[in-house]
């Protein structure tokens, strides 16, 4: 698998990362190198091997349905660039 410049730009756009034109070739090279590295895994024969989703031999633990959190609007809003009352205020989203 190999990424062309258009795909590099698209990935950057989806990730909201601004790319200057001269950055594209360098990133294209780096991303393709990473993909090539990971692609070596395709050479391994995994027929009949169940996918492994973690190193631990355990399943997900569940918690009981109790309210144990919340009630901390000031902490939640502490890093907000802008707030009005207890709302986050963001540049108007026009739909």
């Amino acid at each position: 698998m190999s990424l062309d410049p258009a795909m590099v730009r698209r990935i950057a756009k989806l990730a909201r990362i601004r790319l200057a034109d001269d950055e594209v070739p360098r990133l294209q090279g780096e991303l393709n190198a990473i993909l090539g590295y990971v692609e070596q895994l395709a050479a391994v024969d995994v027929d009949g091997v169940a996918p492994l989703t973690g190193g631990a031999q355990m399943t997900m633990r569940m918690r009981e349905d109790r309210v144990t959190d919340g009630g901390i609007p000031d902490h939640v809003l502490a890093n907000a660039p802008d707030r009005i009352g207890d709302f986050f205020a963001v540049p108007k989203v026009v739909e």
């Binding site: 349905d65 109790r66 309210v67 609007p73 709302f87």
Partner: peptide, 20 residues
């Protein structure tokens, strides 16, 4: 009573950002 992955309450109509 609480959210899918956190212990904050789910009640409708609470004060803004009070159940987060």
């Amino acid at each position: 009573k609480s959210k899918l992955f956190s212990g904050a309450a789910t009640e409708f109509g609470a004060e803004p950002n009070s159940q987060v």
